[in-house]
Structures are given as C-alpha cells and as structure tokens.
Amino acid sequence: MTLIKKLCMPICSAIGNFWLLLAGVLLVADLWVIFLWAPRDTALGDIQRILYLHVPAAWVSFFAFFIVFCMCTWYFIKRSDKADRIAHASAEVGILFTTIFLLSGIIWAKPVWGVWWTWDPRLTTTLIMWLIYSAYLMVRAYAGSDKRAERWSAVIGILGFFNIPIVYASTIWWRTIHPQQMVGPASDPSNALPDPMRITLYFSVLVFTVLFFVLLNIRYNILSAERKIAIIVDQSNHERV
C-alpha cells in the first residue's frame, strides 16, 4: 500500500501542474481521434495506427535537437548560461521522444516487415542520432557544472545535428525498406495520405509538440533552480571562509 502511495504521489502532484494536465487531456483526445475517428488502412489494418505516434515522435525529436543546435551555437557566441540550460533540457526531452520513436518503430517492424530490427539506412542513422544525444547527456551527467563540460557538450550538440538531415533524407538517398515520406516537403504526391489520416497525423503532431514544450519548460525550470541554489551555496561557503 505504501509502495503504491509512494508511486502515485509524484504523479498526482505532477498532474496538479495545469499545463501538464492540459497536455495529458490533449493526449487522451489524441488517442480518441487515432483509435475511434481515423479510418483503418486497407493493407495493414489497425497496426497502421502506430503511424500517429511514430511520426509525431520523430518530428518532435528532430525539433528538439534543432533547438539543441541553436542553443549550443548561441552558447558559443554569447557564453550564455541560459542557452546552455535550454540545450540541456531540450536534449533530454528529445532523447525521450527519440526512444519512443525508435521503440515504436521496432514494435511496428515486427508484424509488418517480419523482423524487429534490420541494418537499413534509416534505422541505422536514427540509432546513431540516439547515441550522439545519449553521449551529449552523459557528458553533462558526469561533468556537473564544470565549464569545460559545457563546452564539450556544446560541441557535440552542434556537430551531432549534422546527422539529422541525413536521417531525414536517408529514405530518399539510399535503397531502404522504410516507407517514403508521406507528408512534408520531401513527400511524393502519389503517396499522399487520405484526408482523415492526414488530419489525424497533424493533430497528433500538434499534441506532441505541446507536450514537448510543457516538458521542456518544467525541465528548464528545474535546471535553473538547481543552478541558483548552487550559486547561493557557493556564496555562503565563500562568506564563511
């Protein structure tokens, strides 16, 4: 009983946060649209509905890492602590979405392609993306508030971004088992999604983006508070000496 209480307490109080609650409600609405409103695909059947979580998670990952790239560049120009913290928060939330994106792909591949994983260009480049940003977060985790670590991770954040256009274009440049883009600038008009599916996908992308910003904001605030506390502790130690 106490264990359940211990597990539930943080969730309860987290839901007390208005924005998080809004994101949760939107996510439930998204489930409703995906499962009850969107039509079933003729060839794949219900399993095709993974699209509405796979593609938005991919979009949010790319977006999150784009923010990391911008903030790391800004950090190098201005040496801004704020940019460094936004980059850190964005990379962390981004890796969460990339993990979801990769796992949903793996779960989708098994029933449709017949294997969990194959060393296809799209899959390989995505895994590399995941590893690059894991490396980024690990450098941060091991180095704490060391200035050198901030610079190191900013270098990873900038260089790592060059992999993302490769991930995106991998289905166009190389022979791959992965389906081609169905929406967006690189999509082939002959693959266009039927309207209800496209609307569902756009709605899902919107919901995931909102959720991303909510999580990013919470993480950023925590990082800022940690920084402030560290500064105060540092000052009081100084005064005592």
Partner: peptide
C-alpha cells in the same frame, strides 16, 4: 493478432 503490437507501442508511449 497484430493488436498486441499496437497496444505495446502505445503502452511504451
């Protein structure tokens, strides 16, 4: 038979 995969994907999310 495929639904278990669909459920697990959303469960992961």
């Amino acid at each position: 038979n495929n639904l278990i995969f669909l459920f697990s994907a959303y469960l992961v999310l």
